[in-house]
Design a binder for these strands. Structure first.
Lengths: 358, 358
DNA sequence: ACAACTTGTGCAATCGATTGAAATATTTTT
DNA sequence: AAAAATATTTCAATCGATTGCACAAGTTGT
């Protein structure tokens, strides 16, 4: 049984089974017969409060199980210590890894995360962004949805003075900090590796063109071919192939050509997997008949047989870098309009699916 | 250039590049020469406000890009429309799937999510719970960390009148709603299936005993053996084996026994995978020499060769059920102390690793 | 002994939206 | 045209913590 005296002439008996109203600094102040401001200052170790009252206040706060009402504090101070996160899907390995890395850093700095998903649609992205602005988050980090082709909602974010950081799927239509991986380099080294393994007819499963990450992977592919003086063949490039099913179909199409490719560089591990399934089902040898390289280094790539060579994106590290950038931006907000681009070098993880020589 | 008159005698010129202070209902009120309360009511379509003023207010609100300050609203109303989520790790497939399902339901009901991870430690769990209480979330949903063996922090949640729902990893030490899968049934049907395939010497990789989910899976294993009159052999049960590496080692140990098992039911897909790797490396045939069944139906189980038979937990559905339960509890809060247990039946997904007959 | 600090605490405004009750305006009724 | 009923709007308090400023008591210096 706890006894609270908020109105001195109106005691309330709180049964421990009832929802007890939260203890406030005013409750503590009343009991100790001091002012709420003193309680507030005592709790935050203000130098002008005597050690004696600090002790008393803290002791009572502990005894009553006082928990500061952050909402009230937020309103007054104008900060929420919360970061908004917008991703296409939470349960996608890459995104949850980035978020995991991000969380570890910002939570240690006292920030909490509010996570939303867009399901790859523009409408939900806009909706989420607005909700986060309303919630007065201290910053927003986002990876664009595939359906996003307009960017005005980000202007809204910036007009509200909220730091905005893109990661992975970014746009150059908005001036803001970004953390991306060097997809061009990733594509380049993947294809370069295939060439080194002796492949001469390398096909490519490209992703949706308007997402920079995919167009860069394709550029990397093209650059590598040029550099090594291999002709670029349009019929070896299949667009918008990033799922297992479309990868399967695209592979069948390629293997139906008169002049079959001897390697495929897929912009997605899943489409590479689809190709692998098709090839195995139809008696092609991997990597001897067709070598395969995917992109993203999904967990399954090391578990399937043969292991799928893939480009690792250091997703956890991306999260950490985004976090650092964010912490830096809120520190200087709103003074400097720093825009930094962090480009992370991916790593090619070579496995059996492309390793011809030992 | 936007012109705001907050103090009538102190105009502020806001350059569009500056961080513009957020528009409030007071700004709108001043401009329209009406009171802030009217603006507030107009915006929320209060019946006692004339259609005329509603129109004017809404028009101006739109023009000024007014965004309600939810923090202020939260403080006044005493709700935050936010759910706190505590999971061991965000980037674990199962959890991110549950969260994904959960999000879809609650976001449509106007709730946002605050997600925290414990990294399987008790301390971080307590810390996260306290932070969520401070943030005044409207509810907390949690899957226990492996390191949690004390439960007082949940009493704190309940004392604050915050609905609390456990999912997957729950405890019966706290009276509260839960959504779990029927692990016992899952274990039972996995082992029953192995017996039907002709296996007689079935080993088990169990998980940490103090997590109910694992002890139930083991019970299911034991029950199935009893029911089918197969002797239980202690040397076929290896405890605390849930990772790929420990699965590999445990499998080596089992295959070193004089009387080798002819099947393994692993409480985790990862330890089953470890076993599979060991068996393949050492020339054993799967499922003919040793049949394998895992648990969780991780994405990789369908991608590896042979496909790993596994128990699907309907993770997405768990999230949806938790969400429904949550929405129901906040609706009735704080009146009724409803405690419901939702038990979801898992599905055995049979693949090559255990299919002996065709 | 008196000015000049230092130390410790309280007062009251503030953040922005919400809401019960009171006040004013408008329409209807008699 | 006055009374009654209804429709709109405003007032003022509130949520709980924070903070500039004022004030009182105690110290130091000359």
């Amino acid at each position: 049984m706890v006894l609270l005296s908020k109105n001195t002439n109106n005691f309330k008996y709180i049964n421990s089974k009832m929802k007890s109203p939260q203890v406030t600094i005013h409750d503590i102040a009343k009991i100790l017969k001091i002012s709420a401001s003193t309680v507030s200052r005592a709790l935050s170790d203000h130098p002008r409060i005597s050690t004696d009252t600090k002790k008393k206040v803290k002791a009572l706060a502990k005894k009553l199980g006082y928990q500061p009402n952050i909402v009230a504090s937020n309103l007054r101070v104008g900060k929420t210590n919360t970061v908004g996160i917008v991703v296409p899907r939470i349960n996608r390995n890459f995104f949850s890894n980035v978020i995991g890395g991000f969380e570890e850093v910002v939570s240690n700095a006292g920030y909490r995360m509010m996570i939303t998903q867009t399901n790859e649609t523009y409408n939900k992205e806009v909706e989420n962004i607005k909700a986060l602005i309303n919630a007065r988050v201290d910053g927003i980090i986002i990876s664009l949805s595939a359906g996003t082709k307009a960017y005005n909602h980000f202007k809204l974010v910036q007009r509200n003075g909220i730091p905005l950081i893109f990661f992975d799927r970014a746009t150059d239509k908005i001036e803001s900090s970004k953390v991306v991986i060097d997809d061009l380099d990733g594509g380049y080294s993947a294809v370069n590796h295939l060439i080194s393994q002796g492949c001469k007819k390398i096909a490519h499963f490209a992703g949706p063109e308007h997402l920079i990450i995919y167009s860069n992977r394709k550029k990397g592919y093209l650059n590598a071919l040029k550099k090594r003086n291999i002709d670029i063949r349009d019929d070896y490039i299949v667009n918008d192939i990033i799922t297992k099913d479309t990868g399967f179909d695209a592979c069948r199409h390629l293997m139906g050509l008169k002049d079959k490719p001897d390697a495929i560089f897929a912009a997605s591990d899943f489409s590479a997997l689809g190709a692998m399934v098709y090839l195995k089902e139809n008696g092609y040898k991997i990597p001897d008949d067709v070598a395969l390289v995917g992109f993203a280094n999904e967990p399954f790539t090391s578990l399937i047989e043969p292991g799928l060579t893939s480009v690792d994106q250091h997703s956890n590290e991306i999260g950490i870098e985004v976090a650092k950038l964010f912490l830096d931006e809120v520190k200087h907000t709103p003074a400097s309009k720093i825009c930094r681009d962090i480009i992370i070098k991916p790593d090619l993880i070579i496995r059996k699916s492309s390793r011809k020589k030992t």
